[in-house]
């Protein structure tokens, strides 16, 4: 006998429906809200001020932008460890271009091309030479860092004199107080989301990670997919690099190093398994925000910054355990067809 739901519960059903369909993303969002509430409770003064959010938003894009394209890489079942150096390489290309030709659009264009090139090299090493991405990108990680160090002889290069020029302001200026990089981050997230979910290419990215052999047997050129994914990631990392260097007003050869583990952590906290096959741009976006919120929150609370790493560690572990539990429960609940 079928039981009928009482009237008026359709909204509740809708919420339950969405929750069970997107339980992973919902959980990530919930963790984010929890983190926010905790810090709000501890330090209402700073978390009630818009300034705090602007401060977060001026730096969060530097972690989140490379994490967004890294999500594509990790979904294919690969990894890219070279992107912090590619950030520096792209930023260096912009810096020398501007010093030679002035602060025009040419700088960002050449920087993006540099990123594409770095991504192409990664892609070819992985698909043509069959070097595992973990190893290949350790190689290019050192190579591009070394390249930048040699080119600059280890010195920083100022960029502050270009502040106020149109291209500079379009990249990291303030639009009625809001940092421009925030808009770039949202734009990149939307475009990457669109292609991953609604485009044929995104579907092939997923299949390359989920069952590469099957994808090949069904005629998908997974080598081409991988190469393009690494190129996109190279280009977007270079873009993040130029945002960092312009925000700081100078180029320095160690640029990007701190984003390595943070960006990877954002992807992982966001629910993309390191084995690939699934994962979402939304998750990475929220995952990155969680990490940035924690960082800002801890500093606002007034304890020493050493706590940041510890709390990061805790949150990563909690997020991973939650994800494993959700996947297990899903499988238990749904294995019903056939038998």
């Amino acid at each position: 006998m079928k039981r009928r739901n009482p009237r008026g519960s359709s909204l509740v059903n809708l919420i339950i429906g969405i929750w069970s369909k997107y339980s992973l993303q919902s959980t990530i969002l919930l963790i984010f809200c929890a983190v926010w509430l905790v810090f709000y409770a501890i330090s209402p003064a700073s978390f009630a001020r818009p300034f705090t959010y602007i401060a977060i938003m001026s730096v969060a894009p530097f972690t989140i932008i490379p994490a967004l394209s890294l999500t594509y890489v990790i979904i294919t079942g690969e990894i890219d460890l070279s992107f912090p150096s590619v950030m520096a390489f792209g930023a260096w290309v912009l810096t020398v271009t501007w010093h030679a030709f002035g602060p025009t659009i040419l700088g960002p264009i050449l920087a993006l091309l540099a990123g594409l090139l770095a991504g192409l090299i990664n892609g070819l090493l992985i698909t043509k030479c069959r070097i595992p991405s973990f190893i290949a990108t350790i190689g290019t990680l050192f190579f591009w860092r070394g390249f930048v160090l040699i080119a600059t002889e280890g010195f920083s290069i100022p960029l502050g004199m270009f502040r106020g020029t149109p291209v500079y302001e379009a990249l990291v200026g303030r639009i009625s107080g809001v940092p421009a990089q925030l808009f770039w981050m949202v734009l990149i997230a939307v475009v990457l989301w669109l292609f991953l979910n609604l485009h044929k290419f995104g579907a092939h990215v997923y299949y390359t990670g989920d069952n590469r052999l099957a994808a090949q047997m069904l005629g998908i050129d997974t080598d081409k997919v991988l190469t393009i994914v690494f190129m996109i990631h190279g280009m977007i990392s270079a873009f993040a690099g130029i945002l960092v260097t312009l925000e700081m007003g100078s180029f320095w050869p160690a640029l990007g190093e701190i984003y390595m583990l943070e960006s990877i952590a954002a992807v992982i906290v966001g629910g993309t398994p390191i084995t690939g096959g699934t994962g979402t741009i939304f998750g990475t976006f929220i995952g990155g925000l969680i990490l940035k919120w924690i960082e800002t929150g801890i500093l606002a609370v007034g304890v020493t910054g050493f706590w940041i790493k510890l709390v990061y560690g805790l949150v990563i572990i909690v997020a991973l355990v939650a994800q494993v539990m959700i996947r297990r429960r899903e499988l238990r609940r749904h294995r019903i067809f056939g038998a």
Partner: peptide, 13 residues
């Protein structure tokens, strides 16, 4: 059209 002996499915999708 070939239906493979191996599983050619993307299980998560």
């Amino acid at each position: 059209e070939l239906v493979h002996q191996e599983r050619t499915l993307a299980e998560d999708h």
